[in-house]
Design a binder for these strands. Sequence first.
DNA 1: GCACCTCTCCCCCGATCGGGGGATAGGTTA
DNA 2: TAACCTATCCCCCGATCGGGGGAGAGGTGC
Lengths: 215, 215
Amino acid sequence: MGLVSADSTRPVKCLVADDHPAMRRAITEILVASGIDVIGEASDGEEALEKIEKRKPDVALVDIKMPRLSGVEVARRVSRSTPETAVLLYSGYGDKAMLLEALDAGARGFVLKEAPLVDLHRAIKTVAEGGTYVDPVLAGALATSEVAMRLPKITQRERDVLRLLADGKSNEEIGKELFISPETVRTHVRKAMAKLEADTRTEAVAKALRQSLIA
Amino acid sequence: MGLVSADSTRPVKCLVADDHPAMRRAITEILVASGIDVIGEASDGEEALEKIEKRKPDVALVDIKMPRLSGVEVARRVSRSTPETAVLLYSGYGDKAMLLEALDAGARGFVLKEAPLVDLHRAIKTVAEGGTYVDPVLAGALATSEVAMRLPKITQRERDVLRLLADGKSNEEIGKELFISPETVRTHVRKAMAKLEADTRTEAVAKALRQSLIA
DNA sequence: GCACCTCTCCCCCGATCGGGGGATAGGTTA
DNA sequence: TAACCTATCCCCCGATCGGGGGAGAGGTGC
């Protein structure tokens, strides 16, 4: 069910960002050869961000290590300013931490440079159609350990409190509703804020909503 | 995600109903090529209804304009007699009235014939999994007219403030960021709260997020 | 048994919020 | 022109929140 959908009757529009000209050229040629429409190139993060926001490609293939603005930062900003563009990050190497940071920043996919070209093509098609693509090598690492760790482990009680918070209730009111002291509610709110790395209860609720921890 | 769900390990079973043999064949071939199991075809509404009730496909892809029994009527009856089958209506054109009538009749989705094939496939998967699918074009029409009319008219400034609020900023911090007085920020927050019928800034942000007034 | 987590409750205290009021300037529209 | 909306700013004041601390009961896991 997607809000994002690519029209399969037209080629996927893609922007390539890499600070190495040779790399850019190589990637672009590969993409064009496989039927992807490369509508722009950028040689650093700032340039990538500007072009993405202006041209709104379906997919932005962005090197994670770039001058002026990292690929992760580009992903973070694009996901806010231009959600219709899926940012696909790539890197020469990658570990779980990097992957998680990338996904957290709003990147829709992560591929390794040594990945087969076929995979690159598939990754682009996948994210263009609204999906998320993680390089199989990295995905393996993830699956075995901490995809679960990644999401803050909000307890049931904390979820209850966040949900009522989102409905505009005060600690006092929530306490009455859950038959606990407002002080306890306060404790739950503080714990949830800490886990979600939020400075205010409002931010905690916003993050919980965005991460679908509450509905 | 619903109560009804198709087993993702087996292909979706689908029935195609259209009074044009060529159209039926074309659609069937497309579906089969994309891994969907077409277990039957029908050339009019009556025949479609009978076959659906007997074979209980996961999804019935039904042309809205057919002899003997319209697609809408098929949807209406199937939703009563065979709720395990999701009726996905399609039509050459569509307007809000038609869409609403279809959904009211129990159709689980509505796609336009000119929709990209990938969308058709996604629509089938979506309704097979218990969801509801509305062609993006029609959904857009809906959004711009009916829905938009009812959404609170938040001003740009209020949106700015809500967005920063969702990031855990205080009035003070937001004021600095927007180059306005914290008192003004407060005013915007209060107005937004009033428009969103929220008792707290937290609820205002939650509602704004849920209504996609901010991201 | 001990470590760890969850849930519960309590204290203090400064910062912030929410509700009420009003005001000025600029833009739109009837 | 008058009515209306938007954006900006200001006041008072009680209610609530956020940060810091502590603590006990009950459960899980090694």
